[in-house]
Design a protein around this nucleic acid. Structure first.
Length: 261
DNA sequence: AACAAAGGCAACCGCCGTCGC
DNA sequence: GGCGACGGCGGTTGCCTTTGT
């Protein structure tokens, strides 16, 4: 790809650069230009396409919205599961996660995670990463991630989320819930029963011990601690707005329940 | 009906890696 | 090897919509 002399680039910068939301006309210009000429140089493209935008802005608009293969609309349960699973494996590498879901962009997945999943699951390490102002070098992240994988410690990362949610009743008359005195257990029991017949516990060394039956790690739905609900051992679905039967949260608990039984 | 608060999401910003000169 | 341009990525912002009072 030929490099452009600095003075030539400055000429574009002298023009008024538009920011903010894209108009339908701008979308049309960019789309038609790319369809006709393809993507050859983002920084030069706006000038030739007749757009007063930066190359970055054009690239973002195309990648996240105008590309023909971009999928719109709500996430399916399958997609949600992939996002969660991949997040547990890869962390906040949204582009890598997006690569696993056809038609979804990294931006969309990131937004979805921060709005829906973060809200419901309250993953501890998300909060930590949000609060942290320290910029980690990508090399270090990759290195760390490789180390984790190589050492077989991917499970440790998964387990660190803790598996806690409120008790709820599922549609096949069993109850899935959490211990009020053990913040790292996920339990399933017949509805109304005071004893749990399946308990997953996480011990201090982050190993997983499972009372019968054996549960594969990748089948385990990992949820986060929700302290305000701990005092109640048997909240019903009706008492919690977020537990409508169409919510992904409900489905996740159902999935966990199904895997365990 | 009007206003405020919260939620959702498109788009921007700044940093970083890669590549050509 | 150093420099600068470019593309890509994750974090953040701010506007618009929805929901609650």
């Amino acid at each position: 790809m030929p490099r452009v002399p600095p003075q030539q680039q400055q000429s574009t910068n002298m023009e008024e650069i538009k920011k903010g939301a894209w108009s339908p006309e701008e979308d049309q210009k960019l789309k038609s230009y790319i369809i006709r000429y393809g993507i050859w140089n983002w920084s030069q493209m706006p000038k030739f396409a007749g757009l007063s935008r930066t190359g970055k802005s054009c690239r973002l608009r195309w990648m996240n919205y105008l590309r023909p293969d971009v999928k719109r609309g709500p996430f399916t349960m399958e997609e949600v599961e992939i996002v969660i699973k991949m997040y547990q494996e890869l962390g906040n590498r949204w582009s890598a996660i997006a690569a696993k879901i056809s038609g979804r962009t990294d931006n969309e997945i990131k937004n979805f995670f921060h709005t829906h999943l973060k809200k419901h699951l309250k993953l501890k390490n998300i909060d930590a990463s949000m609060k942290s102002k320290v910029k980690r070098k990508r090399v270090e992240k990759t290195k760390k991630s490789e180390e984790i994988n190589n050492a077989g410690k991917a499970q440790e990362k998964t387990l660190s989320f803790l598996a806690i949610g409120p008790t709820m009743t599922t549609d096949n008359n069993s109850m899935i819930g959490t211990s009020t005195n053990n913040s790292s257990s996920l339990m399933v029991s017949p509805c109304g029963s005071s004893s749990y017949n399946s308990i997953i516990t996480f011990d201090e060394s982050q190993r997983m011990n499972v009372d019968q039956p054996i549960i594969e790690m990748e089948n385990t739905v990992i949820l986060e601690s929700n302290p305000e609900i701990h005092q109640s051992d048997s909240l019903s679905i009706e008492s919690l707005d977020e537990f409508d039967t169409n919510s992904f949260w409900f489905h996740l608990l159902n999935d966990a329940h199904r895997f365990i039984l």
